[in-house]
């Protein structure tokens, strides 16, 4: 067996191991693939493609075999479009895998117990005839389309695909208590949206004959409540992110 093959299968073994695939299964897979190369007479990269992408397709995107899926944690959250990529990075590093986006654009996530993986994400515009080109570029690199919202497609990839064993996660941080993560620009957008909504409601209520100051008080109370709630949720997200960063500093 050539040095190329040895290097390829060594990297594949490391990546599958970090993905939580059992040792016996990895050994059988590698032996099976070596048999394939022996018959085809091709090189590993030529036959199976880049090792990171191949490993992600073989083992990085599925729960470890034998592990009941019901044992996985689930969590649904959202963030504004200015803040979603940053929060995806934070939560991906905590082992949260986005399975889909629901009808209102929230990230529906799962996290396998035990040998969880760190995940990385990217967001790309898919509309305007870009879909085929974007998928064609990203899929060979191991990126999988995990959901779409408006014109955006969200892609995920286990960090083990590029970082090897470093992409695994030994200790799982607690599940974040919040579900809404707004950045500064997201809050501004929310306030503008609420004010516009209040304006429309005000026009409607005026038609009911309520006094002007009652409508104004209702509107202001609603706006303050919405902004304060958004702040609380964002602060929670920051606390979890900072704890995770502190934990990682402590490990290194």
């Amino acid at each position: 067996m050539t040095e190329d093959s040895d290097r390829y299968f060594s990297a594949l073994t490391d990546t599958l191991h970090a993905s939580g695939v059992p040792h016996e299964q990895i050994a059988a897979t590698v032996e099976d693939l070596r048999a394939h190369l022996a018959e085809s007479g091709t090189g590993p990269e030529e036959e199976f493609g880049p090792v990171a992408a191949f490993a992600a397709q073989l083992g990085g995107l599925v729960p470890p075999p034998g592990e009941p899926d019901e044992a996985a944690e689930s969590w649904t959250w959202t963030a504004d479009l200015f803040n979603d990529r940053r929060m995806l990075a934070v939560h991906g590093d905590q082992g949260w895998e986005v399975e889909s986006l629901d009808a209102i654009g929230r990230f529906v996530c799962r996290r396998a117990p035990g040998a969880a993986l760190r995940w990385e994400y990217r967001r790309e515009v898919l509309k305007g005839g870009r879909r085929e080109r974007v998928l064609g570029e990203l899929e060979p690199e191991g990126w999988e389309l995990c959901g779409e919202w408006m014109m955006y497609g969200y892609f995920k990839r286990p960090k083990a695909a590029t970082a090897g064993p470093e992409g695994g996660l030994e200790a799982l941080p607690a599940r974040p208590r919040g579900w809404l993560f707004l950045g500064a620009r997201g809050k501004v957008a929310l306030v503008i949206w609420v004010l516009a909504l209040l304006g429309m409601v005000g026009v409607s209520l005026t038609g009911l004959g309520l006094p002007g100051y009652t409508i104004a008080l209702l509107g202001v109370g609603w706006a303050i409540g919405a902004t304060y709630t958004a702040k609380l949720e964002t602060d929670k997200g920051h606390v979890h992110r900072d704890r995770e960063a502190a934990r990682r500093r402590g490990e290194s």
């Binding site: 693939l33 394939h36 190369l37 085809s40 030529e46 036959e47 199976f48 493609g49 992408a53 191949f54 397709q57 073989l58 599925v62």
Partner: peptide, 15 residues
């Protein structure tokens, strides 16, 4: 059909 295409399909069929 390259192995890089075939084996992920076999994996999915097995799952």
């Amino acid at each position: 059909i390259k192995g890089g295409t075939l084996y992920p399909v076999l994996n999915r069929l097995e799952e």
